[in-house]
Each structure stands twice: as structure tokens, then as C-alpha cells.
Design a protein around this nucleic acid. Structure first.
Lengths: 319, 319
DNA sequence: GCTGGCCCTGTTATCGGTAACAAGCAAAAA
DNA sequence: TTTTTGCTTGTTACCGATAACAGGGCCAGC
């Protein structure tokens, strides 16, 4: 039975006190360089790893960050895997672990050092204000809370400009029918790019479902001449748009282009495959973790807003 | 500054020793009933919640379960959100938290009380055997390891029988081109049901991608008469099959039926929407958590195999 | 009436760290 | 030379729980 090495063991091997070893780990600047070397050597030889429970107890922390989804989970399903793993990877570096919560569960219940929260709406602000622990939101918001999100505006600008560059003359925006900051930003990205290029924007909104998007297209397709590109607020919508175009045997990408937003899975199973603004969910997760960890460390100091650049994933639905 | 209540506080309020309070929590059968009442009352009044770090330290545990994905993450992306949240919900009841790991990372690194592992292949068995902590696999395996999985066999049997009941005369299986237990089970489910009904099975295998499935169909569609139902090994394949049928302007579900497997997201964005064998991922997650917790508790005692019943989600791709 | 055992509760030591304070010692200041 | 200062390291107490052992009360059996 091999016990894992403790501070004590390292201390003995290095002929110093436990405290010195602890300092080498947490405040190396307080330790003489030559001792540092000796101690680090001993740690390595004993394959020392700090006991997280002991540290947490002594520092009165929990080593736990809670990840909370406030919206209906079904909706965003595939999103989260990458965010979660990106976060977890970053958290583990500091020996933190995760607890996952859904809307229903009492957030306050059980302690944590910090929260990462997604799907917040304005009605959730009171709850946020009541939170004692530091938190970071995933998702743009106008409430002044620290957040991380995809650069929705820049992403949609990029999409719009790409469509233009590929030679489409008419650019139509089909966004989501929700009053959320991310949607406004995507619209703004499209509108800005259009104005920049002296074109008249056309903004439409539908429910975020393939069926709704398809229905919209069935109704309006006749209004759109050849050489139109549909800039869509999500891949779901883009999928519906493509289905409608295929149904009518339109030429994609020749006469009609389609660009989606998200790049999670749908873009790859569609036929033709969708050109889309791909979010870097992993990076978003990493960033969320870094911010909440830093915020915890800085005793709740504000961390500001952080936009993660998406990339344009070019596929078969555009020239 | 309100400190959270500790055992000590509860003990004082209840006029007993810390130890008695601890016993009420962990071994109530050792405490006189009338004292239990008093202590529980005190706990409630002080809103006492045990300090997990302290407990973990004293019991020489970590309160952490690691969730490991050994395969390429892109592949199964949308799967995991529900499993993870199902697990987390169950784990939190015992104050456990999660760490998430991918293939690349050293599993051994950093301690945990147990593991839940997914995506294992035969080459991973040596690594599993070397693991000192208890673990449960997600996914059928023939290595004798404890696991939880969807009842793939039963699910595909159900799908096949449903197609028959709906009046399709020809049932064709299009499975995944992988040598994995789950795939063999789905095939077996189809084959069994066919034999049961005195029909000759037709098993085909393609790469698990819409494109591959579509290509397969383009090549073979002429071989299949009207009134054929395609029993597919995944929704991805079903999506490709549907695309090919739509392309050829076949009548779905009139002349051709399609049934998928998974029910994660693709079934709902396809047009027509896919009838599919829907896995209960949340339940799988819960079960994984329960088993690993019990296994930890029982010092690694084997927990056996656990199959979670899927449901048939009926949609537009079948009569 | 005395002893042994059962049932219940308290005491003590310990888990593996960290903060706060004490102390040693050399260089700098008086 | 003596005092002060600063840098470095060690000592002590404590974080909040649990395990193992100790002890007191009560009843049964001799």
C-alpha cells in the first residue's frame, strides 16, 4: 500500500519544514532560490501532488465552480460539450472541478467559489444581484455583468462581406425571433456591413427552427431574385432555408447562397454543407474558466467583457 | 460577515458533542432517537451544510469523479450534454463534483475517487486494467467491465417491429461501418426481429456520415422496391438516406420509410423529421453516477451491466 | 450484590494543508 | 560596537470533519 506523498514527506526529504515546502508552491518569492531547487527536486522525486481537500479546508475554499444553464437545455444541447471541456481543461490546472446545474435547481444550494452562468435573461438579474459568489456569464448582456461570448457582430460582418466578395448582389438577413443581445449583435453586424457597402439591408426574423425557416422561405422565395445570399442567424435556420431551396430545385450555390451561424454539427450534415460562422466554443470555455478563476482570486473584481473571434467555415452553400 | 455553520455550532445548539452530530449525519443508527430529533432540529435552524473539503480530508477521499472521453470528441459532440448533466445531478446529491478529461490528457494525473469512461476500445483495456480507482464505462463492451448503455438490441428490435407493423414489406438495415459492440447489438436487434418474423435480413454498413449514407443510397436505391423501410444505425445515416430519397423525389413515408437511432438533434432538423430510437441520455448519466458512487462505496465491488431502454420517437419519416 | 456486556455518548488524535507570528542571522545604519 | 532592518525559515494554531478508543449507565445473570 503506497501512500501518496504529503508535504511532510517532501519536507523531510528536503530537510526543511513543511512551511517552506508550502511556500515554494504558493509564494516562491519568499524562499531562497537554492532552497527552492532542493525542494522542487524532492517534490519531483516523491511525485508529490498537493491534497486538494486539505488545501481547500485550510484556505476556506471549495475548489468547485458551478456551471449553470438557465434556459431550456434541449435548445442548446450540442453547444455545451465543447464549452464544458474547454472550461474543465482550464480549471483542472488549478485543481478545480465542476458542478453542473439546471434552471430548476436551487443555485444557492451548496457552496462553490464561483459561478459560470448561461442563458440569463433580464428576469434573472435580481437573482444575479443576490449572488454572493463571483460569477461570469456566457452570453452578451446589457446588464453590465462580466461576460464571454462569440464576437457576434464581427462574425456576421465577416459573413456579409464574404457573401459580397463572392459576388452575390442581394443579401438578405434571416435572424432569430428573440430579443436577446446576441441576436441584436448579429443583426448589427449584417446591417453595418451592408451600409458600409452602400446596400440596403433587409432584416427578417423567424423562430429558430428548421421548420419555421423553411416555411418562411416557401412564402417569400419568389421575392428574391437570383444571385441572392441568405445570411442566417443560426445553422438551424440555414438548414431550413436550404431545404426550401432544394425543394424548389434552385441552384446552390450558383443562384442562391446560404450562410449560417454556429458551426456545431448541423452545418456538416446538411446537403449541401453549410458555409457558416463557426464559434470557437472550446476557447470560450477556456476563457470562462480563466476569468472566473481570476475573479475568485481577485476577490470579485470585475473582469469586463470578452469577445471570442469566430471563423468563417467555407463549404458548399456559397460560391 | 456570517460564517456558515459548522458541526461545532450545531453541537453547541443541541447540547451534544460534535461527534454525536457527525453520527446523526453518517451513522444515525448509533444515536438515540430523541437525540437525533434534537440534533436534526439544530441543523435545520442553523441551516447547516457539511463542509465537503473537511469531510473529504478526514475520510481520505476527493469528492471528485472524472469523466473521460477516449474517442475523438467532434464525433459525439451533442451526446454528452445530457449525460453530463444527468450525472452531475446525481453526483451533487452526494456532494461530488466532476472533472472532464479528453484522450490526450494523462488520466492518472491528479486524484479522483472514481472514473466514468466512454469511447473505450480494445486497445484501451491495458490502461483500464492499470487503473487503481473504480470505474464504470459508458458503452457496451465484451471485456467484462461494468457498463451502462442504451439497450441497443432491444431498441433496434423495437424499430424493426414497428416498421413491420406499419406495413413496410422490405426492411433494410444500414448500419455503421465500425467493429463496436453497440453496432453489433443494433444489427442483432434487427436480425432477430427479422428472423422472428420469418423475413430475410439485409445488413449493410457505411461510414457514419450523411455523405456516405447518401452515396450508398444513390448507388443502391434502384435495388429497393417501393414499400421499403430503411432501419438505420444512426440519425446521421438516416439523414443521408432521406436526402437521397428526397433527391429522387420518392414518397416518404408512403413508399419508403426511414428509422434512425439516437434522437439527439438531427431527427428534429431533418425534413421530413425522422422516426428514431431515442436514447435516454439523461437517465444513462444518472445511472452512471449511481453506479460509480456505489462502486466507490463498496470499495470497487463489480456493478455489472446496465441497459437503459430507449423509446421510439415517431415522426414523419414513417407511416 | 457483584460482574459482564450492551448501548450510547464523549474525548483524543488525525487527515494535509495554510496563516500568523516568532526567531535567527547577516548586512546596514547609528 | 551596538542597534536596526530585512530577509529567510521554523513554530504554533487552526480549518471542519471522522475514526478509534474510552467511559458511564443500565439491565441480566450468577
Amino acid at each position: 500500500m503506497t501512500r501518496t506523498a504529503t508535504l511532510e514527506d517532501v519536507a523531510q526529504k528536503a530537510h526543511v519544514s513543511k512551511m517552506t515546502v508550502s511556500r515554494v508552491i504558493n509564494h516562491p518569492e519568499l524562499v531562497a532560490p537554492e532552497l527552492q531547487v532542493v525542494v522542487e527536486d524532492a517534490m519531483r522525486k516523491l511525485n508529490y501532488h498537493p491534497n486538494n481537500a486539505a488545501r481547500a479546508l485550510a484556505k476556506n475554499q471549495t475548489s468547485v465552480v458551478k456551471f449553470v444553464i438557465l434556459e431550456d437545455i434541449d435548445h442548446m444541447d450540442p453547444y455545451y460539450t465543447n464549452i464544458l471541456f474547454g472550461m474543465a481543461t482550464e480549471l483542472k490546472k488549478k485543481n478545480y472541478s465542476l458542478q453542473l446545474l439546471l434552471k430548476g435547481s436551487q443555485i444557492e444550494q451548496g457552496p462553490a467559489d464561483g459561478f459560470v452562468i448561461t442563458g440569463t435573461r433580464v428576469d434573472d438579474y435580481p437573482m444575479l444581484n443576490a449572488l454572493k459568489e463571483p460569477f461570469i456569464l456566457f452570453g452578451e448582456n446589457r446588464g453590465g455583468y462580466d461576460f464571454v461570448d462569440t464576437d457576434n457582430l464581427g462574425g456576421e460582418t465577416m459573413a456579409t462581406e464574404y457573401a459580397l466578395k463572392q459576388g452575390y448582389r442581394n443579401l438578405v438577413f434571416i435572424g432569430l425571433d428573440v430579443k436577446e443581445a446576441f441576436e441584436f449583435s448579429r443583426e448589427a453586424g449584417y446591417v453595418n456591413a451592408m451600409q458600409q457597402n452602400k446596400k440596403i439591408p433587409s432584416v427578417n426574423r423567424v423562430k429558430n427552427s428548421t421548420t419555421a425557416a423553411r416555411a418562411f422561405m416557401q412564402e417569400h422565395l419568389s421575392e428574391y431574385p437570383k444571385n441572392t445570399c441568405f445570411i442566417c442567424g443560426s445553422d438551424r435556420i440555414a438548414t431550413g432555408v436550404i431545404q426550401a431551396l432544394v425543394e424548389e430545385e434552385k441552384d446552390i450555390p450558383g443562384d442562391y447562397g446560404v450562410i449560417g451561424f454556429d458551426g456545431i454539427l448541423l452545418d456538416k450534415v446538411s446537403s449541401p454543407k453549410i458555409t457558416t460562422v463557426k464559434q470557437d466554443l472550446w476557447k470560450i470555455g477556456e476563457t470562462l474558466a480563466q476569468l472566473i478563476l481570476r475573479k475568485i482570486n481577485q476577490n470579485g473584481a470585475p473582469q469586463g467583457e470578452m469577445f471570442i473571434k469566430p471563423t468563417l467555415s467555407k463549404a458548399e452553400s456559397t460560391k
